[in-house]
Amino acid sequence: MKKVLVLAAAIAFVVLGATAFATTYGKAPGAGDPVKLSELLASPEQYVGKIVKVEGVITDVCAKRGCWMAIAGDKEFQSIRFKVEDGVIVIPLEAKGKQAVAEGTFTKVEMTKEQAIEAAKHHAEEQKQPFDPASVTGPTVTYQLMGTGAIIE
């Protein structure tokens, strides 16, 4: 009896341990292979409006609302913002540095210079980082994932 209990405890430990390390936020991403970020950013127009899954290290998280995270790509200096609806999914600040598999609609975000300055200023304020308006030199086109769900580590 004792052996059975020890075995059951060991199995429970392994099963619970495995699930405890990965948390699903929102809807679990589908079974398909993730798309490489370098591939997405090399031909973004091909993916706009489509549901894509990406994988990578979380490099930044919205500190106040947990309403977005940045995910690093397979190549250096590349990352993409995974934006979620405020309050529907909340990404904890502790997620920074962890591995994520995230899925959402690949979206094009076009901004005038003024809008881009405002957005960058807001981001810098939120992250308590210095901001120089001169760093925004003109209208911007960026891409982000409008997230439906993610699994973090």
Partner: peptide, 20 residues
């Protein structure tokens, strides 16, 4: 660190458990 990232050649992020 547990993981790291460069957003530009000179900007490096180092991630530890719960801090960065």
């Amino acid at each position: 660190p547990k993981s790291s990232f460069r957003s530009a050649p000179h900007l490096v992020d180092l991630f530890y458990d719960g801090w960065s």
